[in-house]
């Protein structure tokens, strides 16, 4: 599998403030890569360096195997970019703006009008004939998505595409990203972890200027496999009975209302013991669950 985007030892300081400290990661072809970090963690800075809009202090960036250099943005022909707050010309209409973009990219007339019609349809702006200045935030974001996809890029870079939107707008953007990922590699930054769980297959967490965590979502889940079990009881009596019967397991326990969360060393052995105790005491729990690690718990673990 080849890497569409490859970042090697990238560093960037603003004055004495080292924003990015020698980060490396690869975005394989065809993946949806979530770039996670708090506000101000350096996500936008990294993206601007990938786009050649900012010079880096150190390190190399490769897009589709070609090296990115500041200013001369040759590698941008592979890239579609959606800035965090895309700014358009307010006096144009959505279609006119896409035509301008199409001409700048150098699409020929027939391909251009076909692509524009397709994209306006995908992002749901085909019937909208208002000037861009009169569009809502969500519509502008969708227009931004359309312009980013116009040249059928190898790599789609989106900077916080969902952060300023309401739940409906977020869903639309995520659906568009998911749909786009069939044809292109997607690299997007976010601080909304539920978005990541919804569509990403790979993530990197940036914290303190360094990559604190990276890998496929499945890999991370197994590596940080949880050893917690949650039991929800039907009554307080059941719960008390269980606690006294299973005293051996009560080393690391969190107890909330009718629920118990047990942290154990050997999850399978613990499950067997628990089931045996429950049946011996004739307790029917409402819920018995081995807890999966969430991105949130992983994120809090590394960046918290």
């Amino acid at each position: 599998m080849t890497n569409t985007l490859s970042v090697k030892g990238l560093s960037k300081s603003f004055g004495a403030n080292k924003v990015i400290d020698s980060i490396s990661f690869d975005v394989p072809e065809g993946s949806i890569f979530g770039f996670i970090g708090a506000n101000g963690a350096g996500k936008t800075t990294t993206m601007k360096m990938i786009l050649g809009l900012l010079p880096s202090d150190n390190g190399e960036i490769f897009v589709c195997g070609e090296k990115v250099s500041f200013g001369a943005t040759k590698t941008n022909r592979f890239i579609g970019y959606l800035p965090d707050v895309p700014e358009f010309y307010g006096y144009m209409r959505a279609k006119e703006y896409l035509q301008l973009c199409g001409e700048i990219v150098g699409l020929d007339a027939v391909v251009k009008s076909r692509r524009i019609a397709e994209l306006l349809d995908i992002v749901g702006l085909s019937g909208v004939n208002k000037r861009i200045s009169a569009l809502s935030r969500g519509m502008k974001q969708r227009l931004g998505m359309a312009q980013a996809l116009l040249n059928e890029p190898e790599l789609l870079i989106c900077d916080e595409p969902t952060s300023a939107l309401d739940p409906m707008g977020r869903k639309e953007i995520l659906d568009t990203l998911k749909q786009a990922s069939r044809k292109t590699t997607v690299f997007f930054s976010t601080h909304i972890l539920s978005d990541v769980e919804r569509i990403c297959d790979r993530v990197a967490v940036i914290s303190g200027g360094q990559i604190a965590l990276s890998g496929t979502l499945a890999e991370l889940r197994t590596k940080h496999k949880s050893n917690s079990i949650l039991i929800k009881f039907a009554s307080a009596i059941d719960k008390e009975q269980f606690v006294s019967a299973a005293a051996l397991l009560m080393k690391d326990v969190k107890s909330v209302d009718m629920e118990l969360t047990l942290r154990v060393t050997d999850i399978e052995a613990a499950q067997r013991v628990i089931l045996r105790i429950l049946s011996l005491n004739d307790i029917l729990p409402l819920k018995l669950e081995v807890l999966e690690p969430t991105i949130e718990s992983l994120y809090l673990e590394v960046a918290g």
Partner: peptide
């Protein structure tokens, strides 16, 4: 000031 050039420049238009 408004950043309207960013999208066009990242589309490969020369400065």
């Amino acid at each position: 000031n408004r950043g309207t050039l960013i999208i066009l420049l990242t589309k490969g238009m020369k400065r």
